[in-house]
Amino acid sequence: MQCFTMMLCCGMLIVGTLANGQTTINLYDGDVPNSKSFPLEETSATDDNGITRVTGVTLPTLTAYLPAAGVANTGKAVIICPGGGYSILAIGHEGHDVAKQLATNGIAAFVLKYRLPKDEIMEDKRIGPLQDAQRAIQLVRERAGEWGIARDKIGIAGFSAGGHLASTLSTHYAAALIDNPKGTSLRPDFSLLLYPVISMQEGMTHGGSRTNLLGSNPNPEDINHFSNELQVTADTPPAFLVHAEDDTVVPIANSQVYIEALQKHGTDAELITYPAGGHGFGLNNKTTADKWFDHFLVWLGGL
């Protein structure tokens, strides 16, 4: 391993309460923005390896994991965007498992089941996932007091294509794509990015993620706009990144160009790299006893 510094009320519909007491709520109070009526059925399936994949999301939700009684509450929160190439959501090991680990450490966590870009269900599929991410941080920030969260300690996490969504929110928060009558800040206070898709540039991007988000023949303007290493400014939030050097699905160059851009602007950032581990390992890289999560806790504690 190498280290470089480099539940609810107010009109919100409760969808269901999980066996562990966590609550899932609809992301939007009313109509889902940028949506078209289409008979798409949401499905969830778990394979022999225990990987749960969700598809066909038309009604996005948040599942809240709050620190249990007796656990010291840090006041911090993380909204989690599972990966899946913008075609599925690997919502178990890149969502709920991570949320439980965060809550155990006194950090409120919210698993975002976001809409996947699809022309049949969206007027503009390029912005659909980002709208859901903006709405998630808006909702958590506006209701932070109810959940024991500090309004200025709310971060975004993302895995793979979910890392692209998290870094997109981190660099495209200023232009609200949702109704925001209270003028609530949509800027995350920090980001956690695991083997993230950062760039849409040919030779660096994950082809499936780019095609699903931007289409099979995207124009140069869209490619650059959603290449988040090109959108970093001095106001981009601090980031903690994790990537394996042997990742053949999403090249480690994605994490490298993002942290380089952050450093150029003097933003606090850290990149944990592993020689092996491939792609999609979630909390546990089985090639090493080292736990990136422990390093993240130390980094987060210093913000």
Rank of each mutant, 00 (worst) to 15 (best):
L303Q: 13
A90W: 00
V98E: 03
L193C: 06
L116H: 09
A69Y: 06
I79N: 08
E221Q: 14
R141T: 04
I25K: 07
D179Y: 06
D294W: 01
V57H: 01
R151Q: 15
A150G: 06
T267M: 12
L89E: 10
M122P: 00
Y65N: 04
G95T: 11
L66H: 04
P60Q: 10
L230P: 03
T23Q: 15
H243C: 05
N284V: 08
W292K: 03
R187W: 13
L297C: 04
I127R: 03
Y86Q: 05
T17V: 13
G84Y: 12
S160A: 08
Y173S: 07
L213R: 05
L40F: 11
Q231R: 09
Y274C: 00
D247A: 02
G95P: 02
L59T: 11
S227L: 11
N105G: 05
T104M: 11
A175E: 15
Y173C: 04
L8T: 12
T267G: 06
Y65T: 08
Y28I: 09
P82S: 12
S227W: 04
Q256K: 07
G16H: 05
L130R: 04
W292I: 02
Q201R: 15
I25H: 04
G30M: 11
Y86P: 04
A77H: 10
D189R: 03
R126C: 02
N284S: 05
F281Y: 15
G50V: 07
V32W: 14
L214W: 01
V98Q: 02
N228E: 13
L27I: 09
T74F: 13
E120Q: 13
Y195M: 07
Y258T: 01
T74L: 12
A133F: 12
V98C: 01
A64G: 07
P129E: 13
I156L: 14
P196C: 07
D247R: 00
N20E: 13
G183V: 14
N49K: 14
F190N: 03
L241K: 00
R115Q: 13
T184S: 12
R53F: 12
G163P: 03
G106W: 13
S87A: 12
H225S: 08
L165D: 06
P60I: 06
N224Q: 14
G207F: 05
I107Q: 10
F110D: 03
F4S: 12
V249E: 02
I25S: 11
V71K: 02
L214K: 01
G277T: 00
E260D: 14
I272R: 08
V54T: 07
D152N: 15
H243V: 10
L192E: 10
L192M: 14
N105Y: 11
